[in-house]
Amino acid sequence: MPLKPQGEQVVDFKAASIADAHHFAHEAMATVFELYIVEEDESYARGGAQAAFAEVDRLEMEMSRFIENSDIARLNSALPGEVVEVGMEVFDCLGRAVEIFEQTGGAFDISVGALYECWLNEDKTVRRPSADEVASARELTGMNHLKLDTESFGVEVLTEGLQLDLGGIGKGFAAEKVAGILREWSLNQALVLAGASSVLSVSVPNGMSGWPIRLSNPSKPSEVLARFELTKGALSGSGRQKGQHIIDPREAEAGPVEGRLAAWSMAPDAVAADALSTAFMLLDPQEIDDYCLANPQTAAIILPHAVSGESQRPEVLRFGQWHQIDTQNDKLKSTTKP
């Protein structure tokens, strides 16, 4: 999934401010998972972190499309008519992906890879595909090509060649599983970071009002766009690097565009937050506003394309409950409801 930044910080947690939280990190899913846990017994906290990271590794083996016998790889090479039995977790995750696909009118789409492959060269420069190429890529895009059998854990690919990629939702899914394990270990005062793009609060440590979070401009990390405290639920960010293109699967013919610089989403769970930050890169402001109204616990901030010649301060649009949040940032020029 080209939208999820790997290296740069889109969401940044200010660790220094939680002096007595233990920090654990683990490389998985092409990123680094980090945990901040407030707990007296360091070695107990480490034990919980170890159990949580083992679960992330196990999920990666099922979810990564690069691992030839993962559930997703098996789906990606399945033929129509063949039912692929996936694990319970992958089944759940696919279900959520389909649900968010529908809620966002197809903007979040785990099959969008076909369009990227059609429109971009390997070095990510834009190519000019033939009308046929575009048509066949379109035929491989959309959740209508996937059939989840709700009576089982069987999944069927209805069109040969469908390529699924959980890159835009899997890390959020794993973060939720991590939170579940930390709860089992009674390590509730914890924060989960899935790479630089998602954070999930298990619960806020005693004596703190929330986890201090910073959102910064992905193309200029020193520029902090918002600061606030995460008290519950999850927050995710998506960003576009300079020169990078994005494709709106709803408007495949239009091809790659430079589009928005970044988008952040807040949602009750990390699965939704992760997927929505991708969708919010694409939905227009009215659509985002509608989404946040229909789903009262979600919020969005978008950083539209910078217009050259304008002032240094980027214009930021906020939606949902982010209207109420005091971002304590004098540099932030926020627009009220569009």
Binding site: H26, S43, Y44, R46, G47, G48, Q50, A51, E184, W185, S186
Partner: peptide
Amino acid sequence: REACVDLKWPNG
């Protein structure tokens, strides 16, 4: 080393 650290168990 990370993969060989002693395993623990949840309290309770």
